[in-house]
């Protein structure tokens, strides 16, 4: 539906068509927003997540011709890149503060105070960053190996193997913790 507005007083403007803009991309993007918000909320602070959501949508719009019919994993991959770019920018900004940060850094991973499962957070922190991300995508985003492969840019076969090992390692770490906590 279009609305047409006349502009009699504007030199050079006769008519303006205003479309509601409910396009194919918009419909898909609206469906992607909540999964993307959760994806970002799991990986960065709230303010950065808000910024990156807008940026992810923008990049998705620019690359909409590449968007597959099942766009979720593709959108996660876009968000992942935006997140990586933001992290790089933050590292650049923080370069002068590195020394202070290193001195102030606690010797071990310190879970957030409101972390509902500090033991799990500690165990995840002991996995490699790739393995930890595979675990998150598997458990939190509930993706299968093929979709995870699309997000992280690996083959589905490689993801299956690494995911299997990561799960085993994580279980082992959690078991170790449980052993250590027994009286």
């Amino acid at each position: 539906m279009k609305e047409r507005a006349s502009c009699r007083t504007c030199p050079g403007v006769e008519q303006v068509d205003v479309e509601p803009r409910q396009t194919g991309f918009e419909a898909v993007a609206q469906e992607l927003i909540e999964p993307l918000r959760r994806y970002l909320a799991r990986r960065t602070d709230a303010a950065t997540a808000d910024d990156l959501l807008s940026e992810t949508l923008l990049v998705a719009w620019r690359r909409r011709d590449d968007m597959p019919a099942e766009p979720l994993a593709w959108a996660y991959a876009v968000a992942r890149n935006c997140l990586a770019n933001a992290e790089r920018a933050r590292r650049r900004q923080d370069r002068l503060l590195v020394r202070i940060w290193q001195l102030a850094r606690p010797p071990e991973h310190a879970p957030a105070r409101d972390d509902p499962d500090p033991g799990l957070a500690r165990a995840l922190a002991r996995l490699s960053s790739v393995d930890a991300e595979l675990m998150r995508l598997w458990a939190w985003e509930e993706l299968g190996p093929a979709e995870i492969a699309q997000v992280v840019g690996m083959s589905a076969n490689a993801v299956s193997i690494r995911l299997h090992r990561a799960r085993r390692k994580l279980k082992s770490l959690l078991d170790e913790q449980a052993e250590g906590e027994r009286p």
């Binding site: 803009r21 396009t23 991309f25 918009e26 993007a29 959501l53 807008s54 949508l57 909409r64």
Partner: peptide
């Protein structure tokens, strides 16, 4: 949010 990105119309 979507309007900010999707302006394909």
């Amino acid at each position: 949010l979507v309007a900010g990105a999707a302006l394909d119309g």
